[in-house]
Each structure stands twice: as C-alpha cells, then as structure tokens.
C-alpha cells in the first residue's frame, strides 16, 4: 500500500505534548475506541470563550489514526467551536485522502470532537 505524502507529513509531525490536568478549568477531553483493541484516541481541548486555544492528544493505532489526530491539531487550534462543530467524517477523509479501510479514523475523530463540544457549550 502506498501512503500519501500529506498523511505521512502529519504522522511525522505528531508529538506527545505534555497533558494538562483533566480537572483544569476550560480543558475538555473525550475518547473513542478501546486501547486493548488497538485503536484508541483521546483528545484534550483547551477552550476559552468560543475559541479552541490548544489541542493535545494521546493515540494508539495505525499511522492513519495518528496522522488524523495530528491533522485535527493543525486545523482546529485557534479555530472557533462552531468551526469544529461543522467538521464531519467526509471532510477528514477528503483532507487526508483516507482509504476505505481507514474511514474509521475519521469517524473516531468526529465522535471525540462532538463529545468535547457537548461538554464545552
């Protein structure tokens, strides 16, 4: 299987930034998948007002899932909550050119963001 360069770029940029304490005000987190199943994503968003100030994550899974998490960091940091709300799986699949067998990465990301926004608004 050939990997696209954009996806590889996000994968290679992915880094485990230190996490905030989960009880810190304005930090919201949610997860999708199960660690023991080999596909798991947990996102942490620092949201103030209507803006996502920062986004961090922990992820276990294929390179596609890691790249998806890093892509979310790149496109959502500094954006409004409304912009995050408009994100759907198709946008992620198209942006990262995910193959059909990796569509679940986009769905996991959208699930997590939806859960976080529910907490934040």
């Amino acid at each position: 299987m050939m990997y696209n360069e954009q996806l590889l770029g996000y994968l290679q940029k992915a880094v485990a930034k230190p996490l905030w304490s989960e009880d810190k005000a304005q930090v919201f987190s949610a997860e999708a998948g199960i660690k023991d199943s080999g596909a798991w994503l947990k996102l942490y968003c620092h949201i103030e007002g209507n803006t996502i100030l920062d986004l961090r994550y922990r992820v276990l899974g294929s390179g596609y899932l890691i790249a998806t998490a890093e892509w979310a960091n790149a496109v959502l940091t500094g954006k409004s909550v409304a912009a995050a709300q408009s994100l759907n799986a198709s946008c992620v699949i198209e942006a990262l050119n995910l193959p059909p067998t990796r569509v679940y990465c986009a769905q996991m990301l959208v699930d997590v963001i939806t859960k976080i926004i529910r907490q934040a608004i």
Binding site: L11, L60, S62, G63
Partner: peptide, 13 residues
C-alpha cells in the same frame, strides 16, 4: 507489544 507495526513502518522512512 502494545504498538501498531503499520504506524512504525509509516514513521520509519
């Protein structure tokens, strides 16, 4: 153990 080989492959150009 506990990692994904494909992710390693993709990250090791």
């Amino acid at each position: 153990q506990g990692l994904n080989a494909e992710a390693l492959l993709m990250s090791l150009p």
